[in-house]
Write a protein that binds this DNA or RNA. Structure first.
Lengths: 234, 234
DNA sequence: CGACTGCTTGATGTCTCTCAAGGCTAGTGG
DNA sequence: CCACTAGCCTTGAGAGACATCAAGCAGTCG
C-alpha cells in the first residue's frame, strides 16, 4: 500500500500517467499501489500468461522480451522511470517484462485498476495520452533498428545513456568529457540494438581507437568528442 | 457528414474503436465523420505539422513515414482497415501518413473529436484498448524487422496479405490454392520489410522456384503450399 | 515504334554473424 | 598471498546474407 504522501513525493510523478491527478484521485490510486524492488533478472509479467498487474517504473530499467516460435528471445523495447507496465483490458501479456538492472516499480492489481479506470475518466485519459506517446516512440525505434548500421546504433546508444544521466560519474565542466557507467552489459546492449555481443564490442573498440571515447573500465565510458559521436549516430 | 445508417453498415465497424458504440453514440460520432477517398500517394498528415484530423481506415492501406535528419524517408508502419489514424491530444503529428494504395478513410476534425472523447468515456476506453493493441503489434513488428531473415520476412508478408483477404481473386476450395493480388509494388514491399527491391524480387523468385508459390501476374500471387510457406515464415 | 516504369537477374562488395580462442577481473579457497 | 575458477569481454578468421551496381526484360502509354 502506497500512502498519499508517498504518491505526492513520487520521483516519477511528473512523468507518469498519474501525474495530473488531484489529491483525492491520487489517494484512491495510491490505495491500490504497492512499491516493489526488483533485482536484475526478476520478471514481472510473462508472455502468454495472465497479465495480472499493471504499474509504473520508479527507477532502474526493465525490458520487454518477445519469444519467437523457435525459442529465440528478443528484446523489443525498454521501460524507464515513468513508463507504464502491463496491459489493461487484455487477458494475456504479449511480452515478458524483466528487470535489466536493479529497479523499483509501483504495481496495481489489474482488476481493481481497471475498475478505477472505468470510474475515473481523467485517469483513463492520461493513460491514453501516455500510450499514444509510447506508440510514437516505439515507431521511431523501428527507424533506428532497420536502417542504421552497427556504428550508428552503438554511437546513438551511448548518447542516449549519457543524456539520461542516471549513472554519471563525472562531468568536470559543461564542455568537458563526460564519464558514466553503462547500466547494461555487452550482451544486453547487443540485444537492445539487435546486434551480437561481438559486434558491439568491436564498435566500442573502434570508437576508442578513433579517440572519440575512452573505456576507463569495462562498464565505464568517457565521451571525449561528443560532436564526432553525434556525427556517427546520424 | 456520415449518416447513422452509413456507420451501422460500415465495413470496419467490428474492427474499429467505434465498433462497440450504441446507436446514439454512433450518431454523434457519425455527425463528425467525413468519408474521404484517397489516391495512391495522397498524404493525410505531415510529420511535424499540426495533426488536425483523426480517423479510421475503411479500405486500402496507408503508411507511416518517418524522415531522418539527413532527409531520407523510411516507412515505420502500415495502417489497414480498422486502424486508427492520427494523434489526439498532440499538437504535431509524429509521422507523415500517406496512402500506399487507393484508399478510403473516415476522418474527424481533431478538436471536436477530442471534445467527444472527453464526454464519452466508452469511446475513449475503446480508443485506449485499440491503441494498446496497436502498441503490442508495433513491438511485435520490431521482432520481425530485427531478427528475421529476408526469406522469413517475405513469406510472413505474403501470409499476412493473404489472411487479410481484401484482394482475393480465387479460392476454389477451403484447402485449394489461394490466388490474390499484392496491394503494394516491389518497392513498397521492400520498404515495409526493411529490405531492397532486389532482395524482395529474389525471394519471390526463390519461393516460385521451390513450387511454394506461383506468380501468375506481376501483382498476383498463388499460394500453392501454405504449410511450407508458414514453415519458412517461422 | 520508342520511351517509360516496374520487375528480374547477375556480378561484386561489404557488413555483420558465427565459430573459436584467449585475456581480464573478481571472487573463492588453499 | 597466490593459484584457481567463472563470467564477461576482446580479438581473429571465415562464412553468409543482403546491399549495391549494372544490365536486360516485359508490359504500357503516347
Amino acid at each position: 500500500m502506497t500512502s498519499l504522501a508517498a504518491c505526492l513525493n513520487c520521483s516519477v510523478r511528473n512523468r507518469s500517467f498519474c501525474g495530473t491527478l488531484d489529491a483525492a484521485d491520487l489517494a484512491t490510486l495510491g490505495g491500490l499501489g504497492r512499491r516493489q524492488k526488483l533485482s536484475q533478472g526478476d520478471a514481472v509479467l510473462w508472455a502468454g500468461q495472465d497479465a495480472d498487474i499493471c504499474g509504473n517504473v520508479l527507477h532502474g530499467a526493465l525490458e520487454l522480451i518477445a519469444t519467437t516460435s523457435d525459442g529465440r528471445a528478443q528484446n523489443v523495447g525498454a521501460l524507464y522511470p515513468g513508463d507504464f507496465i502491463g496491459h489493461p483490458y487484455a487477458d494475456a501479456a504479449a511480452f515478458t517484462v524483466t528487470a535489466i538492472t536493479e529497479s523499483e516499480i509501483c504495481t496495481f492489481p489489474r482488476a481493481p485498476f481497471e475498475r478505477l479506470l472505468a470510474r475515473d475518466a481523467k485517469l483513463e485519459r492520461q493513460l491514453l495520452v501516455q500510450t499514444l506517446a509510447t506508440l510514437d516512440a516505439t515507431r521511431a525505434r523501428i527507424l533506428t533498428l532497420t536502417r542504421r548500421t552497427a556504428a550508428e546504433k552503438v554511437a546513438g546508444f551511448l548518447l542516449e545513456i549519457a543524456e539520461r544521466g542516471e549513472t554519471v560519474r563525472s562531468k568536470p565542466s559543461p564542455t568537458g568529457p563526460l564519464t558514466f557507467d553503462l547500466p547494461l552489459n555487452r550482451g544486453q546492449i547487443a540485444d537492445v540494438l539487435g546486434l551480437t555481443i561481438e559486434t558491439v564490442s568491436r564498435q566500442l573498440t573502434k570508437l576508442k581507437a578513433a579517440g572519440i571515447i575512452a573505456l576507463p573500465g569495462v562498464r565505464a565510458v568517457t565521451i571525449r568528442q561528443e560532436a564526432a559521436l553525434k556525427a556517427i549516430a546520424g
